[in-house]
């Protein structure tokens, strides 16, 4: 087993465990921390796939900004206790089972997908994920969506102001 593979399995396991722990943790703060771990793991995957730019952005945006925002909110609301009332047990089981079913079925469908049976993702190699290449394409071909997403931010900003502002 090569280092890459070891890393892959490790990061995968980390992500899955982290994700599971997000669900299981009773304390929201713990959930957030676990989620950050998941994001780290995913960033690790990105690095492994030689998508360094995304790896960094993922860390900065998700793990850094977003999750901190979550943390702030949780702290602000003083929810950092195990106070969350639990859902009905049966409901939980039903949720888990249906989620599981979804997973099994999607995986089963993918197993039959011919075009990717033997496809491999280029690991550690390839430089499309490098910031230079991405930047070139982003500001040339993707300039329209890039600019348009500003509208999204604008509206999000307005929204946050409208909603968050104290009347």
């Amino acid at each position: 087993m090569s280092t890459t593979e070891i890393l892959f399995w490790f990061l995968s396991a980390l992500a899955l465990v982290g994700a599971t722990m997000v669900l299981i943790s009773k304390n929201p703060v713990h959930s957030i921390l676990w989620l950050i771990i998941v994001f780290f793991a995913i960033s690790g995957h990105y690095v492994l796939l030689n998508a360094q730019f995304l790896a960094i952005v993922n860390l900065i945006v998700y793990a850094g900004a977003i999750m901190v925002l979550f943390l702030f909110v949780v702290m602000l609301m003083n929810l950092n206790s195990d106070s969350e009332p639990q859902k009905n047990k049966w409901f939980k089981i039903a949720g888990a089972i249906s989620g599981g079913c979804l997973m099994l079925i999607m995986i089963d469908v993918i197993r039959d997908a011919g075009e990717i049976q033997h496809a491999k993702a280029l690991v550690k190699e390839g430089n499309i994920g490098l910031i230079k290449n991405l930047g070139m394409v982003l500001f040339k071909e993707y300039v329209v969506p890039f600019e348009i997403s500003s509208v999204l931010f604008l509206s999000a900003m307005v929204g946050a102001v409208v909603i968050g502002k104290k009347d």
Binding site: A19, T20, Q86, F91, G95, G100, L102, M103
Partner: peptide, 13 residues
Amino acid sequence: LFCIGVVGVLTRR
């Protein structure tokens, strides 16, 4: 991971 997310949505309040 996706389905864990789904389960999370389903099971938490």
